[in-house]
Design a protein around this nucleic acid. Structure first.
Length: 238
DNA sequence: GTGCCCACAACTTACCCGAC
DNA sequence: GTCGGGTAAGTTGTGGGCAC
């Protein structure tokens, strides 16, 4: 009888991630380990073995690099923080990769939300600030048994909003960015919808891939355009 | 202001040896 | 034979300092 392995080797990790991060390589994964970002277990013969937690961590690292241009030192800091423990429940990549070991995961997908009170303690933020973010629809919440519940995917938004507050940028100012993102999302949906409506077996998978690619490309485009405008602004005063 | 040097980040490549 | 180990050196891009 075939027994399921509860780990994969470095080559399998690269093979599976290649689809989502084409620039990944075994040497890169080893390098990330040497930099202290990953810590896979080893077999008796010193082979690296990657489990569920390593896979999620690697996805997080690659995502932070690709989407936010975050340096490894900052990613390392984030991984070691409380925030990452909360975000650890974001298993998008897990669902996509469909690793056997992950399908057997003990982490419940239903358990990806956190109560407002708990969040305030963990992020050390003011309740009024969080309420303002919810009132302005900057972050979304659900009500469950008279308690406000926030999805873990919203946590990064809260963290960034807290950082922006240091520059005097209030939650009400962020409404503007919600409007921008809604328009951008609608634009992407217009492109993805015909693919979904084609009705083929793999239409949703294909549309998901298109949406992810466009998210990344438009994010990069926006980033570069903002940078260009800011550069022009600063050059006026040189 | 431009050319050079240096440092740093983030990898990649090469080599050889051992495990599978 | 292929894959994975470690290590060292090389590559590429970027940015800062400094002399001219």
């Amino acid at each position: 009888m075939k027994t399921k392995k509860n780990y994969i080797t470095i080559s399998k990790v690269v093979e599976k991630f290649k689809k989502y991060y084409p620039d990944i390589s075994a040497s890169k994964v080893r390098f990330l380990e040497s930099e202290g970002l990953l810590s896979p277990k080893r077999t008796q013969s010193k082979y690296r073995i990657y489990g569920k937690e390593d896979i999620i961590k690697l996805d997080f690292i690659l995502k932070m690099q690709k989407q936010y241009y975050m340096p490894l030192s900052a990613i390392r800091e984030k991984i070691n923080s409380v925030d990452f423990v909360l975000d650890f429940k974001n298993e998008d990549i897990v669902k996509q990769l469909k690793f056997d070991l992950i399908e057997e995961s003990s982490i419940s997908l239903k358990d990806d939300s956190i109560a407002v009170e708990e969040l305030i303690k963990k992020l050390e933020i003011k309740e009024s600030f969080l309420n303002e973010l919810m009132n302005e629809n900057v972050i979304y919440f659900e009500e469950f048994e008279d308690r406000k519940i926030i999805k873990s995917s919203e946590i990064e938004i809260i963290r960034i909003a807290a950082e922006l507050l240091k520059y005097g940028i209030q939650p009400k100012n962020l409404k503007l960015f919600d409007n921008f993102s809604a328009r951008e999302s609608s634009f992407i949906q217009q492109i993805a919808l015909p693919v979904i409506m084609s009705g083929s077996k793999e239409s949703v998978v294909k549309a998901t891939s298109i949406v992810k690619d466009l998210e990344m490309l438009l994010s990069n485009l926006r980033h570069l355009m903002v940078k260009r405008n800011n550069k022009a602004f600063l050059e006026q005063y040189k």
